[in-house]
Simulated assay, not measured.
Amino acid sequence: MRTLVTTAILLITFISLFTARPALAADSAVGAKIFSANCAACHMKGGNAVNPAKTLKKEALAQYSKDTLDAIVAQVTNGKAAMPAFKSKLNADQIESVAMYVLEKAEQGW
């Protein structure tokens, strides 16, 4: 019986070690702080002070194909139209954190 329990524990440990996904460096809570410091002036409560049609609301993100982490990361990194690029101001982890925050808030309805 003891051997069976030991074997089961070792098997579970082995499986968890080799199938665990790596932790993401990005963090939505960090993204909230970065958003507040860099984005909220134009995007308060998920709005858009420059172009009111292009908000950060879930429907608008989907309409403009910006409803994925990769799309938001690209937008924040490279900018577009009136939105400036943040690639020289924020590092990749910070940009991904902001993107995670935006997606999370859009899902919650801002």
Rank of each mutant, 00 (worst) to 15 (best):
K58L: 15
K57R: 12
A40D: 11
I72V: 13
A60I: 09
L61T: 04
S88H: 10
I12C: 08
G47S: 14
I34H: 00
A60W: 08
T13D: 05
P22M: 06
A82Y: 11
K66G: 08
G79L: 05
G46V: 11
A26C: 06
V102M: 00
V76C: 05
A99Y: 04
N51P: 03
Y64A: 09
A81W: 11
K89Y: 11
L90D: 00
N51M: 12
T3S: 09
R2E: 12
A41W: 07
R2A: 14
N78G: 03
I34F: 01
I72S: 01
N91T: 11
Q63T: 15
K87W: 00
A49H: 03
N91A: 10
C42T: 07
E107P: 02
F14A: 13
K105T: 14
R2C: 13
A26I: 06
A40G: 05
N91G: 08
V50T: 08
A74H: 07
M100F: 08
D70E: 14
K66F: 13
A92G: 05
I34W: 01
K87G: 02
Q108A: 15
Q75W: 09
V76R: 00
V5F: 08
A92S: 10
K54A: 15
A8T: 10
A23M: 09
G109T: 15
T19A: 07
V76A: 02
D93P: 02
E59D: 14
D93Y: 00
K57A: 12
E96W: 00
W110D: 05
A99Q: 03
A26W: 06
E59M: 10
Q108V: 12
A37Y: 01
L61M: 04
T77K: 00
L17A: 08
C42P: 03
L61N: 02
Y101L: 04
H43G: 02
K57W: 10
K57F: 14
I9A: 04
A106L: 08
P52K: 05
L10V: 14
P52R: 01
G31C: 07
M44C: 11
A25R: 05
V30D: 04
Q108N: 10
A99P: 09
W110G: 02
T13N: 06
L17M: 12
Y64H: 09
P22Y: 04
N51L: 13
A92N: 11
D67N: 14
A81L: 10
E104H: 01
A26D: 10
N38T: 13
G47D: 08
A106I: 07
I15V: 12
L24M: 14
A85W: 04
E107D: 13
A53Y: 09
K87H: 11
W110S: 04
M1V: 15
C42D: 02
N51I: 14
R2K: 12
